[in-house]
Amino acid sequence: MLASENSSSHPESFILLGIPGLENSHFWIAFPFCVMYAVAVVGNIIVLHVIRTDHTLHEPMYLFLAMLAMTDLVLSSSTQPKMLAILWFHAHEIEYHTCLIQVFFIHAFSSVESGVLMVMALDRYVAICFPLRHSTILTSSVVGKLGAAVMIRGVLWVSPLCIMISRMPFCLNTVIPQSYCEHMAVLKLICADTTVNRVYGLVGAFSVAGFDMTVISTSYVMILRAVLQLPSGEARLKAFGTCASHLCVILAFYIPALFSFLTHRFGHHVPRVVHIMFATLYLLVPPMLNPVIYGVMTKQIRDRVIHGFCGKSP
């Protein structure tokens, strides 16, 4: 009886607080977030446009980069417009189904991004360790299948999370103390045993991230061994240069993602404002940095962007 009095099938909406503890600074905090979001959107659209219009870039490395850019656009756009509305216009309410859709997109496309980084590492491994067979191993068909596989994996992993949440009763408290709907934050509002949800989410996240990071680490160990065996110092430097941008993108994604994930479950002594800021930046910084890193460190893309804006020959 008590449980039924303090719960309902699901609320009509939730209340997103934004960044608790910094309410008086919400208006000003929104400006750098808006700039970062604009850079993410414009930068990734430019990368997609350059790769789409230049047929010489229709190679595995750049096709995977296009997948990464599309994933970044979805990740940042699934949270940032609502977050800016909260910080600037106090639009704290989010409809129940919209919240679940946000949960789906955040976690599914985080998985997709991790998978794309993994297949990009495999591409670098094949390109450096088997340069003469690169085009025959990673054909357009194989690239498409790898992209479809990481997308399907993300959907299959996250869908049960959303389905389980939708079938559970919620408490009368509908306040989410952050700026977007995330699985663990929504789970805390459920008035029922959420052990299965928590275990499934934890095992799934560690399985996805663990598998991807293992493949990435193994690929780069093999790459390092192959590069160190090259006779020319210039050749070694060039090989390292082709991997440098990818390594920077990997670090920019996994470091804040792991911090946010582990803090949500184990970091009970981490100040809430620190956790919320990292959780917000984890979905914004990688999408902003990725096109900047690849635009600066990848000569082919850099030259074509300069040519497009300045009319100089690449």
Rank of each mutant, 00 (worst) to 15 (best):
I29F: 14
A30F: 10
F31T: 07
P32F: 05
P32H: 12
F33D: 04
C34P: 03
C34T: 15
C34K: 07
M36K: 04
Y37C: 09
Y37W: 14
Y37L: 01
V39N: 04
G43N: 05
I45T: 02
I45G: 02
I46W: 06
V47Y: 02
H49I: 05
V50N: 00
I51M: 00
R52V: 01
T53Q: 06
T53Y: 11
D54L: 03
H55M: 04
H55P: 00
H55Q: 06
T56Q: 10
T56G: 02
P60A: 07
M61E: 12
Y62M: 07
Y62I: 00
F64H: 01
L65D: 03
L65C: 06
A66Y: 03
A66H: 00
A66V: 03
L68R: 03
L68D: 10
L68P: 01
A69L: 10
L73P: 08
V74Y: 07
L75P: 06
S76C: 14
S77G: 12
S78M: 04
Q80N: 10
Q80T: 11
Q80G: 09
P81N: 14
P81Q: 11
P81V: 09
K82L: 15
K82S: 14
M83Q: 15
A85T: 09
I86F: 15
L87N: 03
L87M: 14
L87F: 13
W88V: 08
H90Y: 10
H90A: 13
A91V: 05
H92L: 06
H92D: 14
E93G: 07
I94Q: 08
E95W: 03
E95R: 08
E95T: 09
Y96H: 14
T98F: 01
I101D: 12
Q102R: 10
F105E: 03
F105Y: 11
I106S: 08
H107M: 13
H107N: 14
A108G: 02
A108S: 08
F109V: 05
S110V: 06
S111D: 10
S111K: 05
G115W: 01
V116R: 12
L117F: 06
M118F: 03
M118K: 07
V119R: 01
M120C: 13
A121L: 12
L122S: 07
Y125P: 00
V126A: 06
V126N: 05
I128W: 04
F130C: 00
L132V: 02
L132W: 02
R133G: 01
S135E: 06
I137S: 04
